[in-house]
Simulated scan of single mutants.
Amino acid sequence: MIEKRTAIRLSDGRELVYFDETPTHDRGEWPDTRELPPPPPTSQLRYDPLVDEWVAVAAHRQTRTFLPPSDKCPLCPSTPEFASEIPAPDYDVVTFENQFPSFSDRVKPDEITALTDLVPVRPGVGRCEVVCFTSDHNSYFGNLTPARVRTVVDVWADRTTEMSALPGVAQVFPFENRGVEIGVTLNHPHGQIYAYPTVTPRTQAMLRAAARHAEKTGGRNLYADVLAAEIKSGIRIISANEHWTAYVPAASRWPFEVQIAPNRHVLDIPALNDAERDAFGPLYLDILKRFDALFDKPMPYISAWHQAVTGEGRELGYLHLQLFSIRRAADKLKFLAGSESAMGSFINDVIPEKAAQTLRDII
């Protein structure tokens, strides 16, 4: 749980926030000693009229840091030998603006407004933050204590509230990528939070489905009904406690996919009460350990929070975590090949009920 919150500015003007579990630290005494260039301007959003979607073009991200040695890790605490992104010599949980953001509020004055009559262009206004879960470079989320997970949940809530209030933000998306197989470029345990300027395609599809369901059922929430049906069936339930349920979706796209949802209808992370925040960690840590035990080695995964949008359709949301891996066997990965990448049509190699049984059987 957060006992002290300290915001500072890095040498290039980006914000960094320390979230301490004890109130004794004075973070202001550790300034950023680096000489950094100014942050890059924000990305472009280009509209694809063929599929009614916006695509971000962020060329500056080509130069982002890629798998540095551990003694040059930008997410470790600073040392006399190396000044990292975190000036302090230690920390509990910390967030800061990404040095190579996909979205930001730094808009160029000569921003292009159109490429053709059908392809408008707009600035990628938003915000991208990095969340470091621990100062221990060699740890990972599954090794955190339930108390630290509670702190992280509080941090996600803090950042969701602040980022949702930024001008032009349509939705806030906390997530974690783990493993080089997924595409991780920094090995230090960390996640990210994107504040998008548009509602993402996946969320748009979910909102359309939820709106149709509400219209047909007199206002019922689609995710609440799906969750209730899964709990009643029990076939794909992995684990549960008083406040959360973890289950394999009946129409899973990924070989091993679990959704973790609060049993109470909650719109976003800030709306979770203290009991729900406390109860999340033990359940989530159990699922992560089951993932690693599947093939007796670290499981690459994406852990993605789906929250209600900030504007129209907000009432249709239902907070839930989607955890999935591209590993389909001990020595095989699922690649998004022709059907998935070109057509957006997923083909799963593992029967969801079999995946659920396998995860349940792990002790």
Rank of each mutant, 00 (worst) to 15 (best):
P80R: 11
P80H: 13
A83D: 08
A88T: 00
E97T: 10
E97W: 03
E97A: 08
Q99M: 14
F103E: 03
S104T: 08
V107K: 03
L118K: 11
P120S: 04
R122C: 01
G124C: 09
G124I: 02
V125M: 12
V125I: 12
G126A: 06
R127Y: 10
R127D: 05
V130A: 11
V130Q: 05
F133C: 02
N138D: 15
N138E: 14
S139Y: 09
L144N: 01
T145R: 05
V152S: 09
D154M: 05
V155W: 03
V155N: 02
R159S: 09
S164F: 08
A165N: 10
A165F: 05
A165S: 14
G168N: 03
V169Y: 00
V172C: 13
F173V: 11
E176P: 01
G179Q: 01
G179W: 07
I182V: 14
I182Y: 05
L186Q: 09
L186I: 14
H190Y: 04
H190T: 00
Q192D: 04
Y194P: 06
P197E: 06
P197W: 01
T198K: 04
R202K: 15
Q204K: 10
Q204R: 15
Q204T: 14
R208D: 13
R212T: 15
R212G: 13
H213N: 01
E215I: 04
R220H: 09
